[in-house]
Amino acid sequence: MKAIWYDGFGPAKDVLTFGEMADPEPGPGEVLVRVKASGINPSDVKLRGGARPGAVMAYPRVVPHSDGAGIIESVGADVDPGRVGERVWLWNAQWQRAFGTAAELVALPDTQAVPLPDGTSFAEGACFGIPAMTAWMAVCGDGPVEGQTILVTGGAGTVGRYACQMAALAGARVITTVSSAEKGAHSTAETWINYRTDDVAGAVMDLTYGLGVDRIVEVDFAANQATSLALVKPGGVIASYASASEQMPRLEFYPFMFKNVKLHMLICYQMALADHRRGEAQLTDWLEAGALSHAVVPGGRLADCAAAHELVEAGQKLGTVVVDI
């Protein structure tokens, strides 16, 4: 099979190799998927670059990318052979594993290949593993949100845009923060605030008649901690999936405690399978109803992976960069 791999950390054009590798074989409980599209997330490029503190190569060779979509080509023992030919989207393909979706074929556990509705493209399916499931976990992972007011910070981001849509579909009122009118439109939210020009806390309090919000889907916990503390209602939830501005922020413990706030620091890689299944089912319902829109940024073909990684690193794109296999 053709694949992209790296044998050591470094810049994309220096370490990513395009070439031939042996075809994988599905083991017991696994499926072999013919990959049609591979999604590239910031975590993929950070991992390839060795950006994590104390990073070491976990495997001698890595085929990157956790997200993708394709068609099941064969199955291993203990897997229903009726799954052969099924269109699927993939998650955690390269989480604690050497070989991800940047290849023509990938073998992975049967549970990590989810049926993809016929009306959803492979490129769209390659956006679900990390962006869509992180958004679902942040919005719906703690239970129903119908009737709540939810603030989504960074609503134009890959996770934020899905979160805005999912919160609205789940019956919540949505307010989001963005850095421009273009990004406000991209977010899909009816109500957005430009955090570069406006007082976010004051604007949200005006919009909620001084009540604040029930839930915050947070893109940068450290940068927004003071604002979040001011806006979250007593008994509210802050569901944060990143803190890029400061990885070890000073926590305002007692102010949060006296508002009885729940802080949920989440990562979709560690979702319990039962929770993942709930998210998959709700995502499928929305997809089959045509209720979700997707922001796919074309990343070229598999051989163009280095340039696609650089596109993610540049941070200017609106959506998930996807390479066609």
Results as ranks from 00 to 15, higher is better:
Pro60Gly: 11
Leu116Asn: 05
Ala135Gln: 12
Ala22Ile: 02
Ala189Leu: 10
Val75Trp: 02
Ala167Leu: 13
Arg215Asn: 14
Ala303His: 03
Val63Cys: 13
Lys36Tyr: 06
Ile40Lys: 00
Cys268Val: 14
Pro42Ser: 12
Gln148Ala: 10
Ala303Ser: 06
Leu229Trp: 05
Arg52Cys: 10
Gly50Asn: 07
Gln225Arg: 01
Lys36Arg: 12
Leu151Glu: 14
Val174Cys: 05
Ile150Gly: 15
Leu229Gly: 04
Leu32Gln: 06
Cys127Asp: 00
Val33Ala: 10
Thr177Glu: 03
Val84His: 08
Asp214Leu: 07
Cys127His: 01
Ala126Asn: 08
Val321Trp: 04
Ala306Trp: 09
Leu287Tyr: 00
Ala3Ile: 02
Gly279Phe: 00
Pro42Phe: 12
Ala58Ser: 12
Tyr269Cys: 11
Gly8Phe: 00
Met257Arg: 00
Ala113Cys: 13
Ala281Ile: 03
Leu105Thr: 01
Ala295Pro: 06
Ala107Trp: 07
Asp198His: 09
Asp14Glu: 08
Gly212Ala: 12
Gln94Ser: 14
Val204Glu: 14
Leu287Ile: 10
Arg97Gly: 01
Pro26His: 09
Gly143Ser: 01
Gly315Ser: 07
Arg48Tyr: 06
Leu251Ala: 11
Gly319Trp: 07
Gly315Asp: 03
Gly76Ser: 04
Lys36Asn: 04
Ser240Phe: 09
Ala314Ile: 05
Gly54Ala: 15
Met257His: 01
Thr208Arg: 13
Thr176His: 11
Phe128Asn: 00
Tyr162Trp: 09
Thr134Trp: 13
Gln112Leu: 14
Pro144Met: 02
Ala274His: 11
Val322Leu: 00
Ala167His: 10
Met137Tyr: 09
Thr197Met: 05
Gly154Lys: 06
Lys36Asp: 02
Arg83Asn: 04
Cys140Lys: 13
Gly236Tyr: 15
Met166Asp: 05
Asp110Asn: 11
Ala156Lys: 12
Val297Pro: 04
Pro24Tyr: 15
Val31Leu: 12
Trp5Tyr: 10
Gly171Thr: 00
Gly50Glu: 04
Ala314Ser: 15
Met248Val: 00
Phe253Arg: 05
Lys262Pro: 00
Gly299Asp: 13
Phe253Tyr: 13
Gln94Leu: 01
Val62Ser: 03
Val56Phe: 14
Pro28Phe: 06
Lys233Cys: 08
Val159Tyr: 04
Cys305Leu: 13
Val159Arg: 02
Pro11Asn: 00
Gly85Phe: 05
Trp89Glu: 02
His276Met: 05
Ala226Phe: 03
Gly39Met: 11
Met1Asp: 05
Ile4Leu: 02
Asp7Ile: 02
Glu246Trp: 11
Ala58His: 10
Arg97Met: 03
Val323Asn: 02
Glu280Lys: 12
Cys164Tyr: 08
Glu218Gly: 12
Lys183Arg: 15
Glu288Arg: 15
Ala203His: 12
Gly212Asn: 13
Val15Asp: 12
Glu310Ala: 06
Gly300Tyr: 11
Gly8Trp: 01
Pro109Ser: 14
Val232Thr: 08
Gly290Trp: 07
Gln112Asp: 15
Leu251Trp: 14
Gly279Leu: 02
Leu207Phe: 15
Val237His: 11
Gly29Phe: 08
Leu287Asn: 11
